[in-house]
Nucleic acid binder design. Sequence first.
DNA 1: CACTTCCGGAACGGTCCCGTCTCGTATGGG
DNA 2: CCCATACGAGACGGGACCGTTCCGGAAGTG
Lengths: 207, 207
Amino acid sequence: MTGEGTTSASAGAPAERRGRPRSPAVDTAVVETVLRLLEDGVGVAELSMERIAREAGVGKATVYRRWAGKEALMLDVLRSLDEAVPGPAGACVRDDLVALLEFLRRRGLAKRSSAVLRTVVAQVQARPALWAEYHDTVVAARREAFEAVLRRGMASGEIRADLDTELLTDLFVSPMLSRALFHEWRELPEGLSERIVDTLLEGVRPA
Amino acid sequence: MTGEGTTSASAGAPAERRGRPRSPAVDTAVVETVLRLLEDGVGVAELSMERIAREAGVGKATVYRRWAGKEALMLDVLRSLDEAVPGPAGACVRDDLVALLEFLRRRGLAKRSSAVLRTVVAQVQARPALWAEYHDTVVAARREAFEAVLRRGMASGEIRADLDTELLTDLFVSPMLSRALFHEWRELPEGLSERIVDTLLEGVRPA
DNA sequence: CACTTCCGGAACGGTCCCGTCTCGTATGGG
DNA sequence: CCCATACGAGACGGGACCGTTCCGGAAGTG
């Protein structure tokens, strides 16, 4: 969280820390301020270190004492988003899939979440490290949860076993994702998760 | 293309244009430069009018003579992306859907296209006008093409008629879109379109 | 040919930001 | 208690960009 963790390869003991300790409140205040600004649609470009410090009510030097620059700060901001995805608890695979999509829907409804996602997407080209961090801390866990449910369904016969779980995950997730990205909380109505899952399960061709 | 078209509500006659006419080459040079820079991963933030003019080999005043600011310029850049989507030419609905997705795949493979898309997504919150323009000039036509094919399929019995064409379009399009957004030309392999269409048509549940 | 407008280049004052540094003060470990 | 370190505030020089303005020259129109 302090950012030093990203660079401090100091394997040695941290030794004795003399003097006033760093306030943990500052770390959270800064990260929280960044999230709030992104949420308000500020855009990572207009986010200057100066403005972040100002709006967080924090000295600029205090920010630079913790993070080497905007890139390092953003990395920690993304790290702070790590979140537990719901485990499989439904009666059948279909319900588990709906639950996972419903989790995504509620996240997409939160301005914070979709704003951060948009920000990350915008940086895919320019700052691969940022995207990699987001993928590792947020995306990977979700994908793994989906694929686990799908594999379970394949074993139990509820899901065709001749399909690639990676492609299947995309088919389930990306409709929700696209709407959250493009339409921002609109177009994520109640019941959307069920419609996506059921349509995918049944297929589009008539029986 | 000149940008004045966006603001010039001057319904009156353009009257006689005396003096040296504006060079159309400048318009295209500027727009092309913006596209090239986006393509190189520069990001709309680092795109300053100053830099655009410099890299286009054009006087800054010349740019400001045509566009009121960066927003107006970007609007024209998006407008320049209008493109014809392939019409329905396949033997069956399935082939038409594959053709449309294949069109999207080739666009996603082009760095220019995915870069612009990422840029637009990043601005959904901050500049709704930009997104609206992109939606009207690019997205709307594609969606309409998809929905037309789907309606045709419903009429001919190749597609279930009890489903919403809007949701169906999302189901077909968004997997391709998400991959182009997140993975940038990787992960768009040959044959992906067929796999998406066929999986959606058949359904995920075993027969 | 005369005149008008456009062209690239360059400079302007103004604003914002960066990253560092210095204040005077607050705070907690040894 | 002492002193190292953190804190908020802000000044600093350096740099980038904005949008405007001027220049000298180029290029069409009448």
